[in-house]
Simulated scan of single mutants.
Amino acid sequence: MVGRRFADPSGGPLPARRLADALRTETIGGVLLIAAALIGLVWANTPWASAYTDISQYKIGYLNLAGWSAEGLLAIFFFVAGLELKREFAVGDLRDPKRAVLPIAAAVGGMAVPALIYTLINLGGAVRGWAIPSATDIAFALAVLAVIGKHLPPALRTFLLTLAVVDDLLAIIIIAVFYTASLHVLWLLLALVPLTLFALAVRRFPRTYLLLPLAVATWALVHESGVHATVAGVLLAFTVPVAATESVEHRWRPVSAGIAVPVFAFFAAGVSISGGFGASLRDRITIGVVCGLVLGKTIGITAATWLVQRFTRAELAEELRWPHVIGLGMLGGVGFTVSLLIGELAFGAGTEQDDHAKIGVLLGSVISAVLAAVLLNTMRQKGRPRGRP
């Protein structure tokens, strides 16, 4: 009786199942992300900062722990994102052009305008970081929306999710095309061998542990090719049959939300601000990132949505108003995980320029989240039924 009480239908212990279910929710994943980043940031600015640095730089194989979090664990995050991408394009909102055109346009505008603002501010300087403010952190943004989402239109969340899927796809392309320092074609061709075997095996044995060594082999060969290894996660996801994407994502999302993303955030956010915070605020990299996230995302998402609706037959969902779209644009300025990763790729992890970029990402994301929460909370108050809390 005791064994049956604590077992779930899949054969796993009930506490583990409950934990996994919690990690699949946007709120818990977002909270873990924020908590891990705060711990890393605070620790890096205490008298024990040297211990944090020692842990970050502790080497296992040919990468240190910070490197493994960025290139290894984040591959799991991109694998889950790739599964969601494939499903959305095959059977989701992105399959229908009429429903997809507005969030696609919003995603493109929300990446182009921040990149333009950053580049203009940094002309003649660190323009290589142009893509840093162009990414949206969907876990963080959805966590904010989940906290204030009561009485907001359900279409708002759908719009944000669809926008974020396209944003992820564009971010993956940017990383692969613009932040590959050198390309070794032979290693990339060799990666096709385990990738092809994975594609064949996942169709016949989607739950077998044979898939894991094939995935690791693909990751290692992509890493050796010079392409950022997280791209391997997307390539592997695209080989999963559409019918199996939801179940595979269900299995791996808790690992992504509970381990991969928080560990990366812990190492990526650990920048020392005690000595040169004022100088960082005056640095053009920091200013460019903050302005790109706070202003660029809001302007880009809102303007692109308005232009497409104005000059095409596309229309907003009936329950959405333009203040909702502006608030969603502000939420798009929460560019945490991928923005931090691009900063490391652009300037090199641990460099002074990377530290300025990190401060910009942290400030810009917090400001965007607060502004979005204030505006959307105002809209929620207006949409709240009388007599309801």
Rank of each mutant, 00 (worst) to 15 (best):
Pro9Tyr: 01
Pro9Asn: 04
Gly11Cys: 06
Pro13Tyr: 15
Arg18Val: 03
Ala20Glu: 12
Leu23Asn: 03
Leu23Ala: 06
Arg24Gln: 03
Glu26Asp: 12
Thr27Gln: 09
Gly30Asp: 09
Ile34Arg: 09
Ala35Phe: 08
Ala36Ile: 01
Val42Gln: 02
Thr46Pro: 14
Thr46His: 00
Pro47Ala: 02
Ser50Asp: 05
Leu73Ile: 08
Leu73Gly: 05
Ala75Phe: 05
Leu85Gln: 06
Lys86Ala: 02
Arg87Gly: 14
Arg87Ser: 15
Asp93Pro: 07
Lys98Ser: 06
Leu102Ile: 14
Pro103Gly: 02
Ile104Cys: 05
Ala106Gly: 10
Ala107Tyr: 10
Thr119Leu: 00
Leu123Val: 12
Leu123Phe: 12
Gly124Ile: 05
Arg128Cys: 03
Ile132Thr: 04
Phe140Gly: 14
Ala143Pro: 08
Leu145Glu: 00
His151Tyr: 14
Pro153Val: 13
Pro154Cys: 01
Thr158Lys: 10
Val166Met: 14
Leu169Asn: 14
Ala171Gln: 02
Ile175Val: 01
Val177Tyr: 02
Tyr179Leu: 12
Val193Pro: 09
Leu197Gly: 09
Phe198Glu: 15
Arg203Leu: 10
Arg203Ile: 01
Arg204Phe: 06
Arg204Gly: 09
Tyr209Thr: 08
Leu211His: 05
Pro213Ser: 06
Leu214Gln: 04
Ala215Cys: 10
Ala220Ile: 12
Val222His: 02
Gly226Ala: 09
Phe238Ala: 15
Pro241Phe: 03
Ser247Gln: 13
Val248Arg: 11
Arg251Glu: 01
Ala260Asp: 05
Val263Pro: 00
Ala268Lys: 10
Ala268Trp: 10
Gly276Asn: 14
Ser280Leu: 13
Arg282Ser: 06
Asp283Asn: 13
Gly296Ile: 08
Thr305Gly: 04
Trp306Lys: 12
Trp306Glu: 07
Trp306Ile: 08
Val308Cys: 03
Val308Pro: 07
Arg313Gln: 10
Leu316Ala: 04
Gly333Leu: 04
Thr337Asn: 06
Ser339Tyr: 07
Ser339Val: 12
Leu341Trp: 03
Leu341Val: 06
Ile342Asp: 12
Glu344Thr: 11
Phe347Asp: 08
Gly348Ile: 04
Gln353Asp: 14
Asp355Tyr: 07
Gly360Phe: 02
Ile367Leu: 03
Val370His: 03
Leu371Lys: 02
Leu371Tyr: 12
Ala372Gln: 15
Leu375Arg: 03
Leu376Met: 07
Asn377Ser: 15
Thr378Asp: 08
Met379Ile: 15
Pro385Phe: 00
